[in-house]
Amino acid sequence: MIILLDTLLVTLILTGFLLLGSSRLGASIRISALQGIMTGLLPLALEHGDLFSYVSLLGVAVIGLKGYVFPRLLFSALRESDTSREVQPFVGYMASLFFGILFLMGSFWLDTRLNLPVHSSSDLLVPVAFSLMSCGLFLIVARRTAMSQVIGYLVLENGIYCFGLAVVSGMPLLLELGVLMDIFVAVFVMGIAIYHINREFDHIDADRLSALKG
């Protein structure tokens, strides 16, 4: 199982890098879907034993949402707008990748400093969680289009999910479903917001939403 787990974690890091380096919004949505599926598979790869039915139910829900429902929602929002790529982000793609590497190194360093009580057979889980969280935050602040910011939010959410898997030994199902439900509605609402912004402004450039100041 440890090989499967590590493979998933490394893929997660790689998808994070791909998102940092990609300018096409369509490709970004696909990559984030892949990342969602990987996070959904994670709990199955962790040893849980007696909790298997519960874990697999949750895994199916996560994969269904992040791998199928979200991408469809985002694609339909994207089709409504004429934007297909991120033009001139605040931080260029090469620089973003460089930041990604810095985040990864920082995450490993933070992990050695924190000494969190981890319920996992892999040492990679916590650093990957930190690196995904920082990647997500970075995408939100460094990209201009509303679509990229939503994808950043999803990456942040994936990171928090990994972190939860690492430090909490089993959350109540009701709570997990509540959280998942909220994220679902969040993305749904953001998708609709993008649609409205596009109709009202003819662009989904969140940076140009800047009339309100002071």
Binding site: L137, I140, Y153, A186, H196, E200, A206, L209
Partner: peptide, 22 residues
Amino acid sequence: HASPGALEAMWKYLLMCSVGVA
């Protein structure tokens, strides 16, 4: 009432608070 100002305010609110609450 979907005015440009209201949409901008809503997007800011939605994103900042969702990230904050995360």
